[in-house]
Amino acid sequence: MERGIENYLRFLRGDSSAMRSIVEMFWDTMLLFTNGYVHNISDAEDIAQEALIELAVRKPRLEEEHQLKAYLYRICRNKSINHLKKYQRMTGLSPEAETFLEDESAEIESRMEMKESAKLLHRTMQKLPQNYREILYLRYFGDLSMKETARVMRMTEKQATAVAYQARQQLRKLLEEEGYSGEDL
């Protein structure tokens, strides 16, 4: 399977079509990750797109796959936080808007060909506090190592490990409340 970093290196050598592969590989997970912050697919799309544009403009020197992922997620994270600071979350979305956003989320899930268990996990994660959700996204949807996750989250690896542990505990509790046991997952 072609790796993102290979595409990125191709892009640096001037092959614009490589960007298409990068988008295909990372877009959906970036979107989900970003949507975890902004809770608005449209905004999440803009932010994820900005992250890719930043990658294309800055052309950072990246050599490993995990570096590329970490770079993209970090930009998404920072931009999402800035976005939240700038535009405080809307309160009380109209029912139509809620439905629309849910549909959009569902579309991403189906495009990612998520298994039912992953979908459940994803939805339950929405109920977690932001830092818990963030770290679980990076670990389990972004496939980042703990070291890279810590770097994206701007914390030490030790801290990240602790937060990830707490996040898993809380997620387990939530899933159990939903009626799922560890065996179901």
């Binding site: 960007m19 298409r20 988008v23 890719l52 544009i53 403009v57």
Partner: peptide
């Protein structure tokens, strides 16, 4: 929702413009 092609096109286009601007 945007397609991958649309996203790619937008990314490349905007990146080109910004690169020139930054230079």
């Amino acid at each position: 929702m945007k397609t991958y092609d649309e996203i790619t096109a937008k990314v490349l286009e905007t990146a080109a413009v910004r690169t020139v601007r930054i230079k």
